[in-house]
């Protein structure tokens, strides 16, 4: 019975892993092939990897794009985690009728497609440019600012706070901690798994973000990785070898972030406070 169960488990997970990873294998293989081989669907590794890498790094400013993407993703993620977790915690722990109304109104903000907000938002940053050019159009901060606080993450933190053992807060109050102290010293450490999940998702969203950076960034020195990849395919005869090389390079950081943060999904229960 048990053996059957584990065959089933490993069988299902292996199939899922193969289906999930196949396109990645294809990406890695394509990175080593010539453009014409890739468009004809070659499934075997080739010998063009170094040439693709050289072409990519010689013709495009990959280093600067990587820096910009890292800057945006890290700053936005850290700010977003702090601001959204504070709010999610505040909405659930200090629950009141008024706050519930505010919460529901905030949820409304994620229900409109971003395409509809783009023009007014661009105009807003046009105004910002007049006063604070450092946060205006064509700056990395203009990319970050709309993602510092999103209803999505507030909602996520609030739902997870529902599963947080409230007794710990009382314990903290008895210990004489301030309300903000409870948040930083008790809530944050015991919700590592939640922060890890939110961190992964936020980093990924910001790293892959395309539409907003596309319209708000103009000069080449603030270009991000997704914009660079989009431009690689811009020509009438695109070089798919270069494109796949860039795609692989652009995928590695998020994959690594996931790999490092995922350990919190098993450590949650053994965390110092809750155990």
């Amino acid at each position: 019975m048990n053996k059957l169960k584990s065959i089933f488990t490993y069988g299902i997970l292996s199939i899922a892993a193969i289906v999930s990873l196949f396109p990645f294998a294809w990406m890695l293989i394509s990175m080593t092939n010539k453009s014409s081989d890739i468009s004809q669907g070659r499934l075997l590794p080739g010998s063009n990897l170094l040439e693709n890498l050289r072409n990519l790094f010689e013709s495009y400013n990959v280093g600067s794009a990587l820096f910009n993407s890292f800057f945006i993703a890290i700053v936005a993620t850290v700010l977003c985690l702090v601001v959204s977790s504070l709010a999610g915690y505040g909405f659930e722990i200090y629950r009141s009728k008024g706050k519930d109304i505010v919460f529901n109104i905030l949820l409304l903000s994620m229900m409109i497609p971003f395409a509809a907000l783009m023009v007014p938002l661009f105009r807003l940053f046009g105004d910002v440019s007049q006063v604070f050019p450092a946060f205006g159009i064509d700056t990395l901060y203009a990319v970050i600012l709309p993602y510092v606080s999103t209803a999505f993450f507030i909602f996520f933190f609030r739902q997870n706070t529902k599963m947080f053992t409230k007794d710990l807060i009382e314990a903290g109050r008895i210990d004489g901690l301030s309300e903000i102290g409870i948040f930083f010293r008790i809530y944050m450490p015991s919700m590592k798994n939640t922060f890890a999940a939110a961190g992964i998702i936020s980093f990924m969203n910001n790293w892959n973000n395309f539409l907003w950076p596309l319209v708000i960034l103009q000069s080449p020195d603030v270009q991000t990785i997704p914009l660079l990849i989009s431009n690689l395919g811009s020509g009438y005869s695109p070089d798919f070898g270069i494109i796949y090389t860039a795609i692989v390079i652009g995928t590695i950081p998020t994959a690594l972030i996931f790999f490092f943060l995922q350990k919190y999904f098993v450590e949650g229960m053994t965390g110092s406070v809750k155990g």
Partner: peptide, 22 residues
């Protein structure tokens, strides 16, 4: 009141960057 402080920053940002354009 402390509860309102917790949600203040988030609310300001969303109002500015989502509700105003909306």
């Amino acid at each position: 009141i402390i509860g309102w402080v917790f949600i203040l920053i988030a609310t300001i940002f969303i109002t500015l960057f989502y509700f105003y354009p909306m």
